[in-house]
């Protein structure tokens, strides 16, 4: 995979990698120039090149190029309306449901273009799972919430296998101990944090490679948030995770790499440590120091 990344990377990455003096001057409301930092990795799971997203005539995402590495948590931060959620939803083609939305550029998963006409979104979404801002369990039992995905994808032949998947998924999501005695009870009867972990378990149950999380903790209290963050750290060993968040501390806590979006452009990407301690773009600096956003 790495050779692929290198070949694509070469012509685009023009910004010198370690020139910390570059604080590109840009107008806050104008175009943001080229991405600085290290958007591309050696061993990507997903690659995005020159991605433009339009809602009708309005451009929401402007020439974004970034990789999602294996077994990493990539956090996407930025002020409201900067396009980070829109971009996230391109990664499993959830934007297809929006009639006016048009995606240009190339996004690949394991080297395969996911916007190619031959690609079926149904298996794609099984491989790139998604967890939403508000916990949205189905109004069904806890068991059925988890079992629904494997059932529709035909992942299991027998009831025993299905039971096993449900148990493993709930264990991975750290929810098994709390719900094992009440699997038949409605998923909507759980607390907010439990519901969100149920949604994560639901996404895990279909065996994804990448899990997209769109502000997964914004509707949770601090204790539930801590649990979900803990879970994200554990899941990293098996999945690639892309998380959009408004809480910068959260990005700092859970992610290895951080991408800063501004007005539809990807401004800066770097290791989380570098972004939060030594941002190279003045917009990033302004945002993380709380000057706006």
């Amino acid at each position: 995979m790495s050779h692929l990344a290198e070949t694509i990377q070469a012509p685009i990455q023009t910004t010198p990698a370690h020139d910390s003096s570059v604080k590109t001057s840009t107008d806050l409301h104008g175009k943001v120039g080229k991405t600085i930092g290290t958007p591309f990795v050696d061993d990507p799971r997903m690659t995005c090149r020159d991605v433009d997203v339009f809602y009708g005539e309005a451009q929401a995402i402007n020439k974004v190029g970034i990789d999602v590495g294996c077994n990493e948590v990539l956090a996407m931060i930025g002020p409201s309306g900067c396009g980070k959620s829109t971009f996230l939803r391109c990664l499993n083609r959830m934007n297809d449901t929006v009639a006016s939305c048009r995606v240009e550029g190339e996004i690949t998963l394991d080297g395969v273009d996911i916007y190619h006409p031959d690609i079926d979104v149904v298996p794609l979404r099984a491989r790139v799972g998604m967890v939403f801002q508000k916990p949205n369990p189905f109004p069904k039992s806890i068991y059925d919430n988890i079992a629904y995905g494997p059932r529709i994808h035909g992942l299991t032949g027998t009831k025993g296998e299905l039971d096993e998947i449900v148990e493993i998924s709930l264990k991975k999501a750290g929810l098994w101990e709390e719900v094992k005695d009440r699997l038949a009870e409605p998923g909507t009867g759980l607390s907010g944090g439990q519901q969100q972990r149920l949604c994560i378990a639901r996404a895990i149950a279909v065996g994804p490679e990448v899990i997209l999380m769109d502000e997964p903790c914004s509707a949770l209290d601090p204790i539930a948030t801590a649990k979900v963050e803990e879970l994200i750290a554990e899941l990293r060993t098996q999945y690639s995770i892309v998380i959009v968040t408004h809480a910068m501390q959260q990005a700092a806590r859970v992610s290895q790499r951080t991408a800063y979006f501004h007005l539809g452009s990807l401004v800066e990407v770097g290791s989380t440590k570098q972004i939060f301690t030594n941002p190279r773009h003045h917009l990033t600096e302004d945002y993380i120091t709380g000057r706006f956003g």
Partner: peptide, 13 residues
């Protein structure tokens, strides 16, 4: 819409 998203998000057609 969250119910629709939930279903679509795990690959329901």
């Amino acid at each position: 819409p969250s119910i629709r998203e939930a279903a679509l998000g795990i690959g329901a057609s």
